[in-house]
Design a protein around this nucleic acid. Structure first.
Lengths: 210, 210
DNA sequence: ACCTGAACACCGTTCAAGT
DNA sequence: ACCTGAACACCGTTCAAGT
């Protein structure tokens, strides 16, 4: 009976701003979105976003927080179905990371490059980040004590393995794969198989159970 | 005898714009520099830069072209003094890349992320990029036929090794190392030793010469 | 409580006019 | 040939006023 005029109050503007920020970044291909454009696309005035976020940086922080929480969840969920051996679990971790990055390039860049907000000013970002890092280090440690990975400082090996998957994912997201003669359609396959190549090259055979 | 009033014509504005763009990016910590600020800092009008570059993107392309040419030169020069064996040469290549990235973070990000210009629209960027890629693949091939690296597709192994050093360098430049408990003062050492850990873990002993 | 819309100090880019 | 400076259509952010 009432005409569906947009109401004066939006209702859930905060979440809508977070979602629209990602959409706009994806559509324009620019990481630095315009708050005015986000507001425009949501049909609110240019000042409205600033009722929910003190500035653009804090809107970007909210986007990053949501994204990293999702990655952590996916890491933890995927580990439940992973093979029993630590090498297989490390590969699963790498796959989860690469797939998430390729499916959420905007959020991946935002969370990773941190140029659009202050990572440490967030309560949740360092916590989620560290949870994933602890999973990585735990698997490296297990693999080493099972004799499946060469000895060496755990944090350094974990850093190197993370750098490998981070580098692979970023090369794709940064558009470098065409220069490496990798077709977009087979990007994910190629990245995962490049990771496997390194992990398999590093890993020692399962010790004879006798 | 004449007072040193700034002359109407700058003389070498093109190069000055390229250099000042990097300086401003480094000082502000923002990759997206303002052309107006660059002009202001050089004491020219806001329109002057557009006599030398049709738009900001093309100024950034010029910065990237200069930077990548320098990296290529450094790669080629450093290879001359590298150890004779291909594993040592691969490590030297990785070191060159990591050091360059850490010493030129702004240019590294610009060249790598490519979000501020069109990589393929440049005549020189793809050429320099490919030169470095060919060096990488050549070393991988040599190492494999000497039995020092596990067998496997050369392009994939080269991609993986590049991703490793790219990832390591980017983690530092993106400010992630504090979360990995790596102190800034020892960043370079740590990254290089993480790379060595992987390359050593991958490499097979030199075959007995008998 | 939340939103509007004018205002301010910025941008990138253009272009007629100056040297 | 190269540079100036006003102009235009944008920004992020603030804030009095509206609902």
């Amino acid at each position: 009976m009432t005409t569906h005029q947009r109401p004066y109050h939006h209702g859930n503007l905060r979440q809508a701003l977070i979602d629209m920020a990602v959409t706009v970044a994806e559509e324009t291909g620019k990481d630095l979105i315009s708050v005015r454009e986000v507001a425009r696309r949501l049909g609110v005035s240019s000042g409205a976003p600033f009722r929910h976020f003190p500035n653009r940086e804090s809107l970007m922080t909210a986007v990053a927080e949501e994204a990293l929480a999702r990655l952590r969840l996916r890491v933890e969920r995927d580990q439940l179905d992973a093979p029993i051996d630590p090498i297989g679990q490390l590969k699963t971790l790498g796959r989860t990371f690469i797939r998430w990055a390729l499916q959420n390039p905007t959020q991946f860049r935002l969370v990773s490059s941190r140029r659009l907000f202050e990572f440490d000013r967030s309560a949740s970002l360092p916590v989620h980040f560290d949870a994933i890092r602890q999973v990585t280090m735990g698997l490296v440690e297990q693999a080493q004590s099972a004799g499946r990975l060469p000895a060496g400082a755990v944090p350094e090996m974990a850093l190197a393995l993370r750098a490998l998957v981070y580098g692979l994912a970023r090369m794709q997201v940064d558009g470098q794969l065409p220069q490496w003669r990798v077709d977009t359609s087979e990007a994910e396959r190629t990245l995962i198989s490049a990771m496997d190549l390194i992990v398999d090259g590093l890993s020692r055979p399962r010790p004879d159970p006798n």
